[in-house]
Amino acid sequence: MCRSRDEPVILDIGAGRGEDILAVREQLPGACLQAIESFPVSIEFLKRNDVGVSEIDIETSVLPFESRSIDLVICNQVYEHLKEIFWLTSEIERVLKPDGASIIGVPNLGSLHNRLLLLAGQQPAAIHVLGPHVRGFTVPGLRRFFEAAGTLKVERVGGSNFYPFGRKTARLVANMMPRLAVSSFYLLRRTNSPRRFLDLFDDPIGMELVDTPFYRGSS
Rank of each mutant, 00 (worst) to 15 (best):
M1T: 15
R3G: 14
R3V: 15
R5V: 14
V9Y: 07
V9C: 10
V9K: 12
I10P: 01
L11W: 06
D12M: 11
D12Y: 05
I13A: 06
I13E: 01
G14K: 02
G18M: 05
E19Y: 13
A23K: 13
V24I: 15
Q27V: 13
G30L: 12
G30Q: 14
A31D: 04
C32V: 08
C32T: 07
L33N: 03
Q34H: 14
A35L: 07
I36D: 01
S38D: 13
P40V: 05
P40S: 13
V41R: 15
S42L: 09
S42I: 06
I43H: 05
E44M: 13
E44S: 15
K47V: 09
R48C: 11
R48A: 14
D50T: 12
V51R: 03
V51K: 07
E55N: 13
I56W: 05
I58N: 03
E59K: 06
S61P: 03
V62N: 09
E66G: 14
I70Y: 02
L72P: 06
L72Q: 05
C75F: 08
N76D: 12
Y79V: 02
H81D: 03
H81A: 04
L82D: 00
K83W: 12
K83D: 05
E84W: 03
I85M: 05
I85N: 00
W87N: 00
S90T: 09
S90M: 08
R94Q: 08
R94Y: 04
K97Q: 14
D99W: 14
D99C: 12
A101R: 13
S102C: 13
G105E: 03
P107H: 01
P107L: 02
H113E: 13
N114G: 08
N114F: 03
L118A: 13
L119H: 10
Q122M: 11
A126Y: 03
A126F: 04
H128I: 10
V129K: 13
H133K: 07
R135Q: 12
R135A: 05
R135V: 03
F137V: 01
V139F: 02
P140W: 03
P140Y: 07
G141T: 11
G141M: 08
L142W: 01
L142H: 02
F145Q: 02
E147L: 07
A148R: 11
A149M: 10
G150C: 06
G150A: 10
T151P: 05
L152K: 04
V154P: 00
E155M: 11
G158V: 04
G158C: 09
S160Q: 09
F162Q: 02
F162M: 06
F162G: 00
Y163C: 09
P164H: 09
P164Q: 10
P164M: 09
P164E: 07
P164I: 03
F165I: 14
K168D: 10
K168I: 10
R171A: 05
R171L: 05
V173H: 04
N175W: 03
M176H: 11
P178E: 01
R179M: 02
V182L: 11
S183Q: 09
F185S: 08
F185M: 07
L187S: 05
L188D: 01
L188N: 00
L188K: 00
R189L: 03
R189M: 04
R189W: 07
N192S: 15
N192C: 13
R195M: 12
R196G: 09
D202Y: 11
D202E: 14
D203A: 12
I205E: 09
I205W: 10
G206R: 06
L209D: 09
V210R: 15
T212R: 08
F214D: 01
F214T: 04
R216D: 11
R216G: 11
